[in-house]
Design a protein around this nucleic acid. Structure first.
Length: 423
RNA sequence: GUGGCUAUGGUGAAGUGGUUAACACGGCGGGUUGUGGUCCCGUUAUGCGUGGGUUCGAUCCCCACUAGUCACCCCA
C-alpha cells in the first residue's frame, strides 16, 4: 500500500510531462487568441458552494464528492468541477464591476469519487472556459467555436459536436409536467433507474439505455416543442451563427447535462473511439448560477474538457509531438584529479545559460560517452589527463564526430558561440 | 454503486502441478592499455498482485481481497 497511489489517481512522470505541457500550451495559446484570461481558484471550497451551485440532487454532489471536516470544524470539499468556484470568485471579487463580459479559463485537477476506468479517474484534470455577463447567443457560439478550435488544433478528427437547448426556468417546468404526464401511465413498465428519475429528473428517462425505456419514450414531448419564445429564438440564432462559422453539429434533443445549473444552450463534444468515456468536452449556459451563489443576476456560459481523455485520444492517433530532451554539453572527466575542474566548468557553463551535464557515478570514459549520447549532447568536453596538463581540453562535436583541442580559458566563449551557431 | 474479464522482472511478454521461470527491449559492465550512437559478449525476478486453502509439493487448482480493464451508471 505504501508503494501504490490511491485508487483512481495517477503519477504524471517525466516521460508524460511533455504531452501535458503540449496540451496546456495549446489551450493557453488559443484562449489568449480568443481573449480569455487564466484564473486559479483553490482546490477545496466550502461544501455548500457545490451543494448550491451544482445541485443537491445531482450524482456529483450526492455520491461523488470528497468532503471532509477541517480542524476548525468547517465542511470542505475537494472541487468536483470548477464552474462553481469561478463563479464564487467572480462574485467575491466583484469582477462584474469590471469590463464585461468577463472571459476566464482554468486548468487544474478535479476530484470525484467514482469507479475508475480508462478515461475516468478520481483525480482528473480539466481545462475549462467561462464567460460571465453576456446574454446573447453570440457568446455561446464563441465558446463552442473555442472548444472546437482547441480540439482541432491538437489534430483531433472525427469529433462529434452535439447541441441542444434545455430551456429556462420559464419553459422547463412546462416540459417537465408534460413529460410526467406522458410517462405516468407507463410508470410501472419503466426500469428502476427511470422510476427514480421520474420525480427527480424525468428528462433523463429519454436517454435511458434500457431498450424498453427507449421504446416507451417514443412520442414523448420533446423539450424543443416546449421552449418559450426567447429560448427558441436564442437557440435558432446560435445554430445560425455556428453554421456561418462553418461548424457541423448535430441537434440532440436528448442531450442533457448532469449539473443543475444549466439553462438554454447545452453542448457536448464526443470522440467516439473512447467508448464509454467518449465525452471529451461538455458545457452550456448557466444563467441562474451567479445569482444562486449570491451575486447579481448575471448570465454565464462555459465548458470543461477532460485532459486525460484528450490525451487518450491524442495517443491513439499518434498526435503527440515528441519533445526530445537534449543537452548542449556533456563534460567527461577521465581522472579524479581533474574532477574539480570539470565540475567547475559545468557550473560555469550553466551560469552562462547552457545545458551542461557531467557524470555522477565515476564511470569509465566509454560509459561517459554513452551517457553523453543518451543525454543527446551536442558537444562533449573531454578533460583528458595530458590535455589538461597543457591547459587544453578536447571539444568533440557529437553530430559529425569532429574534435579539436581548445584552451581551457576559452571553453565558455567557444561553446556559447558554437551552440548559438547551431540554433 | 452493479456485472464481466485480467494480474509473471523496469517494459513487452512465453510457460509448467515437482530440479537452475523462455525470448525481446531497456539498464549496468565489458570487447586488449583515453571516445558515443551500429555490432558482439557478460550481467540483470526478495521467484510469478496480496492473503488464505487444496496437495507430499503450486507461479500454474480453489476462495477472498486489492488493482487494472470493459460494459452499465455518471460525466469531462
Amino acid at each position: 500500500m505504501l508503494t501504490t497511489v490511491p485508487r483512481g489517481t495517477k503519477d504524471i512522470l517525466p516521460a508524460d510531462i511533455g504531452a501535458w505541457r503540449y496540451l496546456e500550451n495549446t489551450m493557453r495559446d488559443i484562449c489568449a487568441r480568443f481573449g480569455y484570461e487564466e484564473i486559479r481558484t483553490p482546490i477545496f471550497e466550502h461544501t455548500e458552494l457545490f451543494q448550491r451551485g451544482i445541485g443537491d440532487t445531482t450524482d456529483v454532489v450526492e455520491k461523488e464528492m470528497y468532503t471532509f471536516t477541517d480542524r476548525g470544524e468547517r465542511s470542505l470539499t475537494l472541487r468536483p468541477e470548477n464552474t462553481a468556484s469561478v463563479v464564487r470568485a467572480y462574485v467575491e471579487h466583484k469582477l462584474y464591476a469590471e469590463n464585461s463580459p468577463t472571459k476566464l479559463f482554468y486548468i487544474g485537477p478535479m476530484f470525484r469519487y467514482d469507479r475508475p476506468q480508462a478515461g475516468r479517474y478520481r483525480q482528473f484534470h480539466q481545462f475549462g472556459v467561462e464567460a460571465l455577463g453576456a446574454v446573447g447567443p453570440n457568446i455561446d457560439a464563441e465558446i463552442i467555436i473555442l472548444a472546437v478550435t482547441v480540439l482541432q488544433s491538437l489534430g483531433l478528427k472525427d469529433l462529434k459536436l452535439k447541441i441542444n437547448s434545455v430551456g429556462c426556468p420559464k419553459c422547463r417546468p412546462e416540459h417537465r409536467n408534460r413529460l410526467q404526464e406522458f410517462f405516468k401511465p407507463k410508470f410501472n413498465e419503466l426500469c428502476k433507474d427511470c422510476q427514480s428519475r421520474f420525480d427527480r429528473n424525468p428528462l433523463r428517462i429519454l436517454d435511458c439505455k434500457v431498450p424498453h425505456c427507449g421504446e416507451l419514450s417514443v412520442g414523448a414531448p420533446s423539450l424543443g416543442e416546449c421552449l418559450c419564445e426567447e429560448c427558441s429564438s436564442h437557440f435558432e440564432k446560435l445554430k445560425e451563427l455556428l453554421t456561418s462559422a462553418g461548424l457541423t453539429y448535430e441537434v440532440d434533443t436528448n442531450l442533457v447535462r448532469g449539473l443543475d445549473y444549466y439553462t438554454r444552450t447545452a453542448f457536448e463534444i464526443q470522440y467516439t473511439p473512447l467508448g464509454a468515456q467518449s465525452a471529451v468536452c461538455g458545457g452550456g449556459r448557466y444563467d441562474g448560477l451567479v445569482k444562486e451563489v449570491g451575486g447579481p443576476e448575471t448570465p454565464g456560459i462555459g465548458f470543461a474538457m477532460g485532459m486525460e481523455r484528450i490525451l487518450l485520444a491524442l495517443e491513439s492517433q499518434n498526435l503527440i509531438p515528441d519533445t526530445n530532451f537534449s543537452t548542449d554539453v556533456y563534460a567527461i572527466c577521465t581522472n579524479e584529479e581533474n574532477f574539480s575542474l570539470t565540475f567547475k566548468t559545468v557550473i560555469d557553463l550553466r551560469r552562462e545559460g547552457l545545458k551542461a551535464e557531467f557524470d555522477f557515478n565515476g564511470r569509465s570514459m566509454k560509459a561517459q560517452m554513452k551517457q553523453a549520447n543518451r543525454y543527446n549532447a551536442k558537444y562533449v568536453l573531454i578533460f583528458g589527463e595530458d590535455e589538461v596538463k597543457n591547459g587544453k581540453v578536447v571539444l568533440r562535436d557529437m553530430l559529425n564526430s569532429d574534435q579539436k583541442e581548445i584552451d581551457l580559458k576559452d571553453i565558455t566563449t567557444i561553446l556559447k558561440a558554437e551552440v548559438q551557431n547551431n540554433e
